[in-house]
Simulated scan of single mutants.
Amino acid sequence: MSLVVVGSVAYDGVETPHGKIDRMLGGACTYIALSASYFTHSKIVAVVGEDFAQEDRDLLAERGIDLSGLEVAEGKTFFWQGVYSADMNDRETLRTDLNVFATFQPKLPESYKTQPYLFLGNIQPALQKQVFEQMSKLRFCGGDTMNFWINDFRDELLATIADWNFLLINDSEARLLSGESNLRKAAAKIMAMGPKNLVIKRGEYGAMLFRPNSLFVAPGYLLDSVFDPTGAGDCFAGGFTGYLAERGFDLQGDIDPHELHRAVIYGSVMGSFCCEQFGVERFRTLTRKEIDGRFEEFQKFTAF
């Protein structure tokens, strides 16, 4: 059983207080699939250009990620460039070249359509819905979105998330989507839109899991040094969904809330590892033993 991940595979140029990288592997689909690959089999649906390097393809393949759904189109791969503030809580986008991603139409191999788990990354809501409707045996489906889709494609977005089992967004997106400044009220409004499991990510302050009549709050992991927060939220998504897939979870059946709580913690763990080096570099050496060790740290510093 595999997790199908739909989204962007890209190149990023990033500058933080710790240094500058002109070109490195990135994209939401990349981070989610790499993170999830420590728990379950990942299959990606994305598009890259003719400039996509073999060494980057090899990194994904070495993690056991199925690349059958990775389309190579004529042109260049999506490129994003940004610079982070001194405390790395804010970033400024310097350049966005959509390139082949501008005309991305997700193409699912037949073998993907019967998989039980689906994460729909940050693409146009109509495309997310199009993918969802091709999947025939889902046990859970969810994804994320962003301010642009919330503001300019609201009706399309609402029609899409109505079918989802879960939604992962950050606190500012939750307020924008709901029209509520109070996160508890915001969560209630969003769950009424369809997703009965809502994760609100709060960066270095952790994450909150809302379900009907329940709330779970997890802190962020305190690192000695944050080198690059790019992709941390996507790695959270990969850890969260990857763990649920590993456990054979069915969000349409009887639910053990403690498993969902553990998924949130594994999401936080994966996000923290992402920040330790630039881009995807940490995944070149990261082991499941390290991941489980940090999970146990979370258990110790939150027990009372």
Rank of each mutant, 00 (worst) to 15 (best):
N165T: 13
N165Q: 14
L167R: 05
L167C: 12
L168W: 08
L168E: 00
I169L: 01
I169E: 03
N170T: 05
D171F: 09
S172T: 15
E173K: 04
E173I: 03
A174R: 13
A174T: 00
R175E: 09
R175K: 14
L176P: 09
L177I: 02
L177D: 09
L177Y: 01
S178F: 01
S178G: 02
S178W: 05
S178Q: 02
G179W: 11
E180Q: 15
N182E: 12
N182L: 03
L183D: 04
L183H: 02
L183A: 08
A186Y: 01
A187F: 01
A187C: 02
A188M: 01
A188H: 00
A188W: 06
A188G: 00
K189F: 04
K189E: 07
K189V: 14
I190R: 07
M191D: 00
M191P: 05
A192T: 00
A192R: 01
G194N: 08
P195Y: 06
P195S: 12
K196V: 02
K196R: 14
N197M: 11
N197C: 11
L198V: 12
K201E: 01
K201F: 11
R202S: 15
R202Y: 12
G203P: 13
G203T: 12
E204F: 15
Y205N: 06
G206P: 09
A207P: 05
M208Q: 13
M208N: 14
M208S: 15
M208I: 15
L209H: 03
L209S: 03
F210Y: 14
P212L: 05
N213S: 14
N213T: 10
S214I: 06
L215I: 11
L215K: 08
L215C: 11
F216N: 13
F216W: 13
G220Y: 09
G220D: 02
G220C: 01
G220L: 01
Y221L: 02
L222I: 02
L223Q: 09
D224R: 14
D224L: 10
D224N: 14
S225H: 06
F227A: 14
D228G: 07
D228A: 06
D228W: 07
P229L: 10
P229M: 04
T230V: 07
T230W: 08
T230P: 07
G231L: 06
G231I: 02
G231H: 06
G231V: 07
A232K: 14
D234V: 07
F236P: 00
A237F: 03
A237W: 04
G238Y: 08
G239C: 09
G239T: 12
G239I: 02
F240C: 13
F240R: 07
T241E: 00
T241P: 00
T241C: 00
G242Y: 02
G242T: 01
G242L: 02
L244F: 05
L244G: 01
L244E: 12
A245W: 13
E246V: 10
E246H: 13
E246T: 10
R247A: 13
R247L: 05
R247T: 13
R247W: 10
G248C: 00
D250G: 07
D250M: 04
L251N: 10
L251A: 07
G253A: 10
G253H: 07
D254C: 03
D254W: 09
I255T: 11
